[in-house]
Design a binder for these strands. Structure first.
Lengths: 119, 119
DNA sequence: CAAATATACATAATTTTCTTATGCATAAGG
DNA sequence: CCTTATGCATAAGAAAATTATGTATATTTG
């Protein structure tokens, strides 16, 4: 019995962007737990981007191990939640990642030309 | 003796975008050879994106194997060049990839918010 | 003119990042 | 009661890149 779990994305372009997404959402929301992140992303992209658990949880663990996230365990309705939030280093890294993302978009615009513009 | 070869890019965001870049450049230029692509990309991004040979050549071979590219060997100044151009299927696929790229940017904009806008 | 750099291809080993497939457990809805 | 939703986790494998080589000719530079 498989629950037809849609992949993270149709295209391969999202590779490498998961960490940036996580850092930015945590910066906005203050703290979030894993499942909440997947739902938030799904909603914001109108179902077009589904983060898989196999990608998300290892990513969260890695960011935590790198000192970019702090974790806090909570029990809600007898179910476990692990709330993540940015550390100070995480806030700095988030800023860097967003700058890289803007640069990426700027460069892709030059290469692949342009229906979109910056600013 | 190592020639300090810079990586394809500082950030990981470019992962997955190489094929799209290749298809679009070939569409614009008509035909190009591998080394020419690396130089063109370097120039267009003002040196910020350096495609490595280890990424480029396997990608070209794969695109050719998939029927998206045709190759034509030439000898210039006693040196080998392999000119690639889009097949009909390659043209169609280029269109798809560009649409995916736009969708990717649109989704990232929703997620990570917004200094850039589409259109 | 010798040495270094640029041009031009290629591939193998490894790493990173993701998909796919599981696994466990509780809550809610039909 | 059975399915779906919530919530975590990890392992096996694939895909795409990095890093490190290797070969060869042409050009520039000290």
């Amino acid at each position: 019995m498989l629950g037809v779990v849609k992949a993270m994305a149709n295209s391969k372009l999202y590779k490498g962007s998961l960490n940036t997404i996580i850092l930015k959402l945590l910066d906005e929301e203050g703290k979030m737990y894993g499942y909440e992140i997947t739902q938030k992303v799904k909603k914001l992209t109108k179902g077009e981007l589904n983060i898989t658990e196999g990608a998300l949880y290892p990513a969260l663990h890695k960011l935590e191990a790198e000192g970019l996230l702090d974790v806090e365990v909570a029990k809600v309705d007898n179910r476990l939640r692990k709330y993540y939030k940015l550390t100070e280093q995480g806030v700095r890294e988030k800023t860097n990642r967003l700058a890289e993302l803007e640069e990426f978009v700027r460069n892709m615009q030059q290469l692949v030309n342009p229906k979109w513009s910056i600013e």
